[in-house]
Design a protein around this nucleic acid. Structure first.
Lengths: 107, 107
DNA sequence: ACATCATATCGTAATATTGCAATCTGTAAA
DNA sequence: TTTACAGATTGCAATATTACGATATGATGT
């Protein structure tokens, strides 16, 4: 036990969940916010900004990358990260449909 | 170690993260979808629909409730769950701002 | 009162996540 | 080539999550 039964759920449900899960940590929300303040790409000041060790941030970046939320390209000595809107859109549309399907509720 | 450094991040960042985290499991995405198919409230068929034990589903419902995504009211013998749009909106608006801030990127 | 049904809670095992120091890798400057 | 820097990876400890059987709780019907 303790193993998530992913195979029991649809591809879509797993996809939505993995995007949301990637956003589900304050450090990763912070990273996304930092990526937005920089014009487009950021070449890693993140370590200086956030109160976490370099190894930890590298790990969080990897998770965001694995979930497809950010992309990184090597640019000489440094890495250049930016947000991939595809996944953001997918989750956004899911939330939109939740809002739309919502009917008056007495709860 | 192993303890998330929540206090190092803003209330907003923690809030967004906890909403996303709650959605970050396929079973919980499935539960949300089920709640949408029922007109407004659902009086627990979830256990019959999902391939998980009753205890597990109860736990997932609790997490969604703790995150503020769903609300439950007792209705005689059964419980009546429905979605609370406030939190959905908050995360939705965050994603919207991510999309809006996005500027052309060469990555 | 008793049985029944719907859910919650407890206890526990398996697995995943978080965080960091230390170390490795690859690029660029000296 | 040596040095220095930016990141990634590894190894490990602490903690959290997932899942479920068993049991508790609480309301309804008999």
């Amino acid at each position: 036990m303790g193993l998530t039964k992913s195979h029991q759920f649809s591809l879509y449900q797993n996809d939505i969940a993995s995007i949301a899960k990637a956003i589900g940590h304050p450090a990763r929300v912070a990273i996304i916010e930092i990526l937005l303040t920089k014009k487009n790409c950021i070449c890693n000041d993140i370590v200086d900004i956030l109160p976490l060790a370099q190894a930890t941030i590298s790990q969080h970046l990897k998770e965001l990358k694995t979930a497809g939320i950010i992309q990184g390209t090597i640019e000489g000595k440094t890495l250049c990260y930016c947000i991939n809107n595809e996944k953001i859109k997918l989750l956004s549309e899911f939330l939109q449909s939740v809002k739309n399907h919502q009917i008056s509720c007495d709860c």
